[in-house]
């Protein structure tokens, strides 16, 4: 898993590259938490265009980040999910808390 980020127009853009499963979950959580702690943005967009695999462990990782940012009133959005990730998001209702944007 590789995580790239940039801030533009008060938005933190995060690009997840690789596979998100139990093996990469811990690194993904800690890296995102480090990025999310910086106070120079008002919303977060997680770009999944480079995510080649995700199982339900990824849902746990995303919900965990949502809970942390909810207290700070910073919304998180998802963009460019694969068809497969989308299937898991719809099944778990993730889009209700992290809407998909184009």
């Amino acid at each position: 898993m590789q995580i790239k980020s940039r801030v533009h127009n008060n938005t933190l853009y995060v690009l997840l590259c690789g596979e998100l499963d139990e093996h990469t979950a811990s690194y993904t959580k800690s890296t995102l938490d480090e990025l999310f702690v910086k106070p120079n943005f008002q919303k977060i967009v997680i770009d999944l265009s480079e995510l080649s695999f995700m199982d339900s462990t990824g849902i746990g990782v995303l919900i965990g980040r949502y809970k942390k940012m909810k207290g700070k009133n910073i919304p998180i959005f998802i963009c460019n999910p694969s068809q497969h990730a989308e299937k898991i998001f719809k099944m778990t209702g993730l889009y209700e808390i992290m809407p998909k944007i184009v």
Binding site: D55, S56, T57, G60, I63, I88, M91, T92
Partner: peptide
């Protein structure tokens, strides 16, 4: 406490 989704079996079944 470990931020698990609890959706493993649901995903397998789907």
């Amino acid at each position: 406490s470990e931020e698990r989704s609890g959706m493993g079996f649901t995903v397998m079944e789907s």
